[in-house]
Nucleic acid binder design. Structure first.
Lengths: 243, 243
DNA sequence: GGTCTGGCCTTGTTTGTACAAGTTCCCCTA
DNA sequence: TAGGGGAACTTGTACAAACAAGGCCAGACC
């Protein structure tokens, strides 16, 4: 995080959040910024590209960049790890492992994880003491041992695995939809059977592209939402038709 | 779309999709690609940055880039416009306007659209003849006339507004969660009251950052899902705690 | 046989330059 | 006064060069 363009991006982001550049206003031109920071125009371009990727500013050829929005997301971890996200937002987060066992991988799991044997873990996560999330996670066998070695009250699995074996979750693919609560979901989350749940299914891989986990996370309705900013020409989210 | 780096990105994307670079394999180095396309290294970097943003490839300093995944999303329109998305995927899409009226903006709408009067439109969209989506959209007053002038059976509002008044939707902010179907939702979508719906609320703005519409879209569960790829260091999606 | 180190390879960062393409806005004209 | 033309400004694209930082591997060493 010592890169020049990241420092400039951070400074501009702070200015935007502080209201120096209000929503709807124009950002200084690249030339002005380059002069202000004594940096080359390319470096400034990299900095504002970061802000554009975050959805903070929009840009069009020929016109000044426009400030689009206020607060913004930061890290990959925030989307990936429930605990890290919750803590960064100042929530009180808890959780416990309800069940854990090794078994043979089903065909779908074999395709996603490339591992004949898997470790299945059922976790309940709480926010401010209220149960909000039920995680059904399946880990590839090569990492199963490290997962089992984690303390049962480990709040952040992501962080735990990083500290114990140096594993870094680097890439993820997520599928988001809505489902009705099954009887187990209902009992554990404290809702009625059939009530709506927000479901996030994801595969996570290491930096080398090796799959680590495949998870089915179900949020109680009204507890959590997903937010995304997009722009013409930069669009990471897609719809998918089911069935 | 005549830019050099876009052409290179398109060619590499095609190669990946065609299996020339299988998932998990290494992409040629920047130097090799630069030589192959007789382009500067910077141009090649821009091209692979596009693929990285799409989640197709991952990269780490020091190591060759890795191919992460297969098919990918394309356009902003795909997320923004239900009709354009459905048609691009080869689905048969239909829809009708169920109600439309002008009224004074509520406080939340005033904040989001900055318009004291709004046009409220209720639309039902179908996929392969089945109702899957109920849209409750509120338009800012300055565009309301153009919306009313659209034919009632207009399949794509986005496209209709572009053709009639040249309006381009450029930026969007989306909030995704799950809700229970209300009685109106249930009747129109053909599901039981209280059954789960996937809700997407969004504000869309023009290129200048002017808000155009604020919409509450509800999908029948099991009909549509949202998909996203992310990576450490590039993460557009965020969780939000509600209440 | 295992481990460690050093060199090579590859990606990341930065600067500088030049031109292309689109926007904005003022001034001039009808 | 309304409209058109054009100059100035701003972002987009492309090239070239150099060094930094981290990964990878083979050969040396214990």
């Amino acid at each position: 995080m010592a890169a020049r363009y990241e420092l400039i991006a951070a400074e501009l982001r702070d200015e935007i959040l502080a209201g120096v550049h209000p929503v709807g206003s124009q950002l200084p031109s690249e030339a002005e910024l380059a002069a202000r920071y004594s940096a080359a125009r390319g470096t400034v371009r990299q900095a504002v590209a970061v802000l554009a990727a975050e959805g903070l500013v929009g840009s069009r050829q020929g016109a000044r960049r426009i400030v689009l929005g206020g607060e913004r997301s930061q890290s990959f971890a925030e989307l990936h790890s429930f605990a890290q996200w919750a803590r960064s937002k100042g929530h009180r987060v808890g959780g416990e492992v309800l069940g854990q066992r090794r078994r043979r991988a089903g065909p779908a799991e074999l395709v996603r994880l490339g591992s004949p044997e898997v470790l299945e873990v059922l976790r309940l996560r709480t926010l401010e003491g209220e149960p909000v999330l039920l995680e059904r996670t399946v880990y590839a066998s090569w990492i199963a041992g490290a997962v089992e070695a984690l303390p049962p009250d480990c709040v952040s699995v992501t962080q735990g695995l990083y500290e114990s074996v140096g594993l870094v979750f680097a890439y993820g693919e997520h599928l988001i939809d809505a489902v009705a609560a099954g009887s187990e979901d209902a009992r554990l989350l404290g809702v009625r059977r059939g009530s709506p749940l927000l479901r996030q299914r994801r595969v996570t891989t290491t930096q080398e592209g090796r799959p680590v986990e495949w998870s089915d996370d179900r949020y109680r309705a009204g507890s959590v939402a997903f937010s995304i900013r997009n722009s013409i020409g930069a669009n990471p989210l897609t719809r998918l038709a089911l069935s």
